[in-house]
């Protein structure tokens, strides 16, 4: 008897928390399908609050067709930056992780220490000089500023080192004696074994870039080159903008990510636990 009551209580609590977790997301998506009038019409508790009465796609049409705030362009900008950073990042970080994990070379310890020591430098401290550097390079308002400084990710290298160290050195040596060069060994033997780790890292990099806010806010001032997160935040500083448009913008930029996450959830969670348990 006592046990059933406990199980019931526990399920109720779990359901309540689940509701709190999804409700803002649900509200965001539902409101994006409402007309402008409808959003401000229902200001008391009623069933109309939870489902649109007159479904409309007008908000989506508006944000994509507004030439002064080209939302489609923002999404493409962000996608471009995220894809390039993820690809280059995987190559650069995996290469150096492989060297640190498996190869013998002078000053290995020292180099690894230097790499890892960068982990304590908080981004906020180097933000100002990084911005000045971008000015010196003439990269303000260019995608290079969004891409190049973001490629190397020491945390990612650290994660891959742990992964690569499980590859037995015997296999590598055997391939070496058969006459393969190290680049070939890396591409043909090491990379294929690390696919799950690469997916994890790729997913984390992509999401970081998709969500990136402070750095684009600082280095991109040109309307057309902006990324979505900053663009969305600038939507609401405009007076008189309809909530429907803001919420259409937030929905369209987070729902695809949420769907991708549902499929690749395993890899994402693995990334977190690897950083948490081993780190």
């Amino acid at each position: 008897m006592k046990n059933t009551a406990f199980v019931f209580l526990r399920l109720t609590a779990m359901a309540a928390i689940a509701l709190v977790s999804v409700f803002p997301i649900y509200w965001m998506v539902m409101s994006s399908f409402r007309t402008h009038e409808e959003i401000f019409k229902y200001a008391t508790l009623s069933p109309e609050l939870f489902l649109p009465v007159k479904w409309t796609l007008q908000n989506y049409r508006d944000i994509f067709l507004d030439p002064s705030k080209p939302f489609g362009r923002y999404m493409l900008n962000t996608l471009l930056v995220a894809v390039v950073v993820t690809t280059l990042g995987l190559i650069v970080n995996a290469l150096s992780a492989f060297a640190f994990a498996k190869l013998r070379f002078p000053f290995k310890r020292l180099l690894l220490t230097i790499f890892l020591s960068s982990l304590v430098i908080p981004y906020e401290v180097i933000m100002v000089p990084q911005y000045l550097l971008m000015r010196d390079f003439g990269w303000i308002n260019s995608y290079s500023a969004l891409i190049v400084p973001q490629i190397v990710w020491v945390f990612g290298i650290f994660m891959l080192i742990q992964f690569f160290s499980d590859v037995p050195r015997d296999i590598l040596e055997a391939a070496r004696i058969d006459g393969s060069g190290w680049t070939r060994i890396f591409a043909k033997i090491v990379l294929p074994t690390a696919v799950p780790a690469l997916i994890t890292l790729g997913l984390m990099t992509f999401l970081n870039q998709w969500d990136s806010f402070l750095w684009p806010l600082v280095v991109i001032n040109e309307e057309k080159k902006q990324v979505i997160q900053v663009a969305i935040s600038s939507f609401q500083s405009l007076r008189n903008i309809s909530w429907g448009k803001i919420l259409a913008a937030t929905s369209i930029s987070s729902v695809p990510i949420l769907v991708v996450f549902l499929f690749l959830q395993k890899y994402y969670v693995q990334g977190i636990t690897m950083s948490g348990v081993k780190g």
Binding site: V92, N93, L95, S96, F98, A99, F100, L103, R104, F105, P106, K108, L111, I114, F115, S118, I121, V125, I126, P129, Q130, L132, L133, V148, P149, I151, V152, V154, I157, G181, W182, T183, F186
Partner: peptide, 26 residues
């Protein structure tokens, strides 16, 4: 092997030096 290793590390090292360590110093 050492040459390959240093070559593999070079891109990450250069990026780290230019975009993390130099800004820290500056």
């Amino acid at each position: 092997e050492s040459r390959a290793a240093l070559l593999f590390i070079a891109p990450a090292f250069v990026l780290l030096a230019v975009f993390i360590f130099y800004p820290m110093f500056r």
